[in-house]
Every structure is written in structure tokens, then in C-alpha cells.
Design a binder for these strands. Sequence first.
DNA 1: TTTTCTTCCGAACGATCGTCCGATCACCCC
DNA 2: GGGGTGATCGGACGATCGTTCGGAAGAAAA
Lengths: 215, 215
Amino acid sequence: MREREGYDEKLSRILRIAAETFAERGYHQASIRDIAAATEISLSGLYYYFRSKEELLFLIQDHVFGEILDRASRALSEVESPEDQLRTFVHIHLSFFVDNMAEMRVLSHEARALSGDFRERVGNTKREYTALVQDILARLRPDRPEGDLRLATFSLFGMLNWIYTWYKPGRDPSAETLAREMSGLFLRGFLSAGLGDEEPAPPVADASGSFWPRS
Amino acid sequence: MREREGYDEKLSRILRIAAETFAERGYHQASIRDIAAATEISLSGLYYYFRSKEELLFLIQDHVFGEILDRASRALSEVESPEDQLRTFVHIHLSFFVDNMAEMRVLSHEARALSGDFRERVGNTKREYTALVQDILARLRPDRPEGDLRLATFSLFGMLNWIYTWYKPGRDPSAETLAREMSGLFLRGFLSAGLGDEEPAPPVADASGSFWPRS
DNA sequence: TTTTCTTCCGAACGATCGTCCGATCACCCC
DNA sequence: GGGGTGATCGGACGATCGTTCGGAAGAAAA
């Protein structure tokens, strides 16, 4: 059994370093040779731990997504009110994002790099994770149609996930601060939507048409 | 050739088709040979219009970013109140995004693919475009510190730009509907931030640590 | 000791990539 | 006609890619 522990630990180490490499250079840019150099394992030696580069990407995404889904659903079950659930979710999501920036970047940015069965399996987890949030929003505002909830869900995820494009630890606020600000911003906006204090029709500037000639 | 196409028109056509190819397969995945096939121009013939694949990506990003920056700043100058300016900006941004999904996807998703001078020049435009929004937010809430405005700006852009990961024309609402919902959601949340009607301290579940063993 | 199994590696394979070179064609001015 | 110029092309080059194969080191099992 000592061998198996060695195996699992080594695989985890490979996945972590591979995630960092993919996060830095991008999945298609980074070569298996890059990962071999970073892990100090030979090129062919790596293939003992995965069958293909795509499977390597899948292992990273599947593990990290399963983990955050597990943490989120467990944490949500310990909170009662939908509003606190939303706050808890945002906090967990952002904390996990900041603590595992490389893996979460790979998860957010390389979603389309997988194909076939790999893509479908990660997609299923994503759907489950998304439903977690949309269900909370449905309980917060049972009066809103599903389309609006869907839009609000994606808006929230956009707000949250976009941090991988700008967040730098040290320079930027802690995950706790981010979570407080973002969940507040979202909740105030979402809870008071369509309650009769609406603004007059907004001015609409013409933004139709496209830049490139389409002939 | 029967149809005499000018140099500029042909370049625009190449940039448009290249943007669609990059949007579909990703910049690094898509080969110049893919673009040659899609444009029906020979592989080497394409190099008459750009010096390298990276310059091709730059031309796409630079043109489309310059265009949306120009449209946004011109439209904003015709509106007075900061709130209407924010609504106008969101509408222009989303309309342009939906109308030029391929180019905007390339712009949002392939930002790090450029290097050196190319990267810097697109980065400058991006900074200018971002400042446009942050200045509006500063006028909306002059009492808030710059750090909060920065966070709110990135939150808004995340909400807006994330649509390239889920939006499907036909199935999803029009750009006008998106703009109304999203600018309302954001404005209600942002305008009422820190005005004394705050919630009690939110429950904080433990989400520290990382999934991958780190040693 | 001999065999087996896990773990790892050097070296190579075929494929594909971005880029370049020399030639060609159509067209315009002299 | 001759020569220049803009536009285009076939074909190749070297580099790099993911992947594979046969085998070796070492411990465990026999």
C-alpha cells in the first residue's frame, strides 16, 4: 500500500504542476515537454500517469470541479436563508478561486479544449454547480421567471469568474473582501429588481451593425 | 478575377474570416491553413496581408477594440447624467458584442496570446476603455474610494464579457433586453452600496486551503 | 535465485506547424 | 512591345508537437 500512496501523491503533484503550466502558457501552447521539465519527470515517464494530453487536462478539471462542487453543496446545507446561502456560496467560490488560481483558471479558460466524453463529464458537473446557484436565486425571488433567473445566474458567475483576468494576490483585496463586496452588489441589485421603483425608459444609442464589412 | 476587390476590402474579409476561425477553434488551435481554406486564399498568399500569425491576431483585436472604443466614447459624450451614461455604455457594449461575437470572443479570450509590442498596444486600448467606465462610476458615487470603483468596474465587465461563454443568439434574449437587465442589476447594487442599510455580518464558512496536496 | 510488476526513460516516429522563397500572372504606364 | 508593380501561388524548410516503443532499474513475489 505504500506504493499506491506514492502513486497518488505523485499524480497529484503532476496535476498541480501541469495546472500551473497550463495556467501560465495556456493549454495548447504548453507542451508535455514543458510539464516534463517542470515536474522533472521524463517526457515518456509522464505517460505512465495519463493516456493523453487531453486526459491530463480532464483530470485537472474534473478533480478541481468535483472538489469545489462538494465544498459548496456541503456548506450550503448548513445555512438556512437563501440570502445567507448566496453569501456563503460567493465566499466559498471566491476563496477557492483565489487559493487555487491555477486550477480555476484552467477550468474557466480551457473549457472548450476538451472534446467528446471528457467535455460532457465536465459539462455535467458544471450544470450541477450552476443549478446550485440558480436554485438559490429561485428561492430568493420566486416571482421571477426562469429566464430572468438564468440571466442573473450567468451574470453572477461572470462577475465572479472574471477575476482570473485581473486578480493579483497582494495588490488586490482578500477573497473575504471580494466576497462581501460582490455578494452585496449582486444581492442589492437582484432583490430589488422589478419592484415598481423602476427608472424611465433608458436612452438607447445606436450600436447596431458590425465593424467588418460583411459583403 | 471578375469582381475587383480592393486591398482594404480583401483585408477586412480576411480579418473577419480569421476572427471566426479563431473564435471557433481558438487562436493556437487554428492554423493558417484553416484560414487559407476558409478564405479560399492560398497559404502563402495570405502572408501578403500580414507578416505573422501574431500580427494577424493583433490586427483583429486592434481594429475591433478601436471601433468599440470609438463608438462608446462618442455615444457617451451625447448623454449627460452618469446613470444614463452607464446604461448607454452597457447597451453599446452588449450590442456590439452580440453583433460581432466572433471578434469580441477573440478579444476577450485571446488577450494573453499576444506578446511584446502587440500586447502593449492592445493593453493601452483596454486601459482606456476600462477608464471610460470607472470614470462614470466615480461620478455616480464620488464618495467611494478608488479601490471600490476598480472592483465594481471589473465586476461589471465580468458580468458583460462572460456572455461569450453562454450566449446563443435565438435562444437567449436580445442585446437590448440583456442591457436593460444587467445595467439595472448593476446600478441598483452599486448605487445603494454602503448607505447604512447593511446586513449583519454574513456567515463565513471555511473555504481555505487547496485541493491538491502541496508538498 | 528467478520471475514478476511497477515505475521510469532515451530515442524515435509521423504529423503538423509557421514561415519563406522563387516563380507566375494580370495589369498599367512608357 | 517592354518593363515595372501589385497580388498570388506551389512547394519546401526547419522546428516542434503528441505519442509510442523497447527496454532498464529496482523492489516484491515466487
